[in-house]
């Protein structure tokens, strides 16, 4: 600006130059670590996905899209992919429906803060611990049932083999919803708390029902946050691993392929395998994970796009 030639302006101009000199020493350590440990390995994974490679001791051999073609015909991969999609979609729908229900009820309920805090806690518990915990709660063993079957039998229902391969994916989905809901309730409630109360008062005067208030006030005014929460959910659900591994499997080695997710697939084909590892295939599956996240996030952003709201 030609107008600002006062002393302060010039002083801060010189200061700005000195500040800019600080940029690289400040930024470089972090970005170096980031590039070396995250960016380069990601690119390497993409490259290795095009190779046939058994792992350490073997030499990667370029095979083009052969891995991906093989993935398509692999039962294990098909289960992994569909299960992962199921966790993202069914788990997501369940978690968000639950979170919406809670926002409707919690908005003007006493003790709401306490409830939120209680529900949030599972989010800072290690998934592996949650998994073990659930594996004991859900155990099926006539006469010495886990907590869940104990309750079922005590009300006269039949015990269920929760952890059997054909059930376990839905059981894990339930556990996932239970454990994550607190996080999304908190995010959505924080957004709801920012909505000015007089909008709800006006809706009261209009005679809106709780559903109408949700539909016409809460939902449109938290839309942005819901979009971000959806992205966070997708990112989190794509890499689901420990919960499945512990709940569906015998412990140290992989569960039956019917229960696999992409995360389990990558682990099983590389570090967790009983037979010969296939690092090339694992890398290809990892690339699928990235693609899945990217596609879903872009899709979600497009679906949720809308003008920003100012109160």
């Amino acid at each position: 600006m030609p107008g600002s030639t006062d002393v302060g302006g010039r002083a801060s101009g010189a200061h700005l130059v000195r500040k800019k000199r600080l940029f690289f020493p400040f930024f470089l350590p972090a970005v170096t670590l980031y590039v070396v440990f995250l960016v380069v390995p990601t690119l390497a994974t993409v490259a290795l996905g095009f190779t046939s490679w058994a792992g350490a001791g073997d030499t990667p051999e370029f095979t083009g899209f052969a891995n991906y073609v093989e993935l398509l015909s692999s039962d294990a991969f098909r289960y992994s992919f569909l299960n992962t999609l199921l966790y993202i979609v069914a788990g997501g729908v369940g978690t968000f429906l639950l979170a919406f229900l809670f926002t409707m009820v919690l908005r003007d309920m006493r003790g709401g803060k306490l409830i939120r805090a209680i529900l949030f806690f599972p989010n800072i518990v290690a998934p592996v611990a949650l998994g073990m915990f659930f594996s004991i709660v859900l155990i099926y063993r006539p006469n010495r049932q886990g907590l869940a079957n104990h309750l079922l039998e005590s009300v006269g229902l039949d015990a269920v083999k929760f952890l059997q391969a054909e059930n376990v994916t839905w059981v894990v989905t339930g556990c996932l919803i239970w454990a994550s809901s607190g996080f999304y309730i908190t995010i959505l409630m924080a957004a709801v708390d920012r909505i000015p109360p007089y909008l709800y008062e006006d809706a009261d005067i209009a005679g809106a029902t709780p559903w109408q208030k949700f539909r016409h006030v809460t939902l449109p005014l938290t839309w942005d946050v819901i979009g971000v929460a959806g992205v966070l959910w997708t990112i989190g659900a794509v890499k689901i691993f420990e919960l499945v591994f512990v709940l569906a499997g015998p412990g140290t080695y992989s569960p039956p392929i019917r229960a696999w997710t992409l995360g389990v697939y990558v682990f099983d084909r590389s570090f967790g395998t009983q037979g010969t590892p296939e690092y090339g295939m694992a890398c290809a599956a990892a690339v699928v994970m990235i693609l899945l996240v990217s596609v879903l996030v872009v899709l979600l952003r497009r679906l949720m796009r809308r003008d920003t709201i100012q109160f």
Partner: peptide, 26 residues
């Protein structure tokens, strides 16, 4: 732009870096 570049890292599942990372660290 650089902030976004770093933030994208949050969306990368660890499974996608762990194989080359393990080989490299080994």
């Amino acid at each position: 732009g650089m902030t976004n570049f770093v933030a994208i890292g949050m969306g990368v599942p660890f499974q996608t870096v762990v194989i080359p990372l393990f080989i490299g660290m080994a």
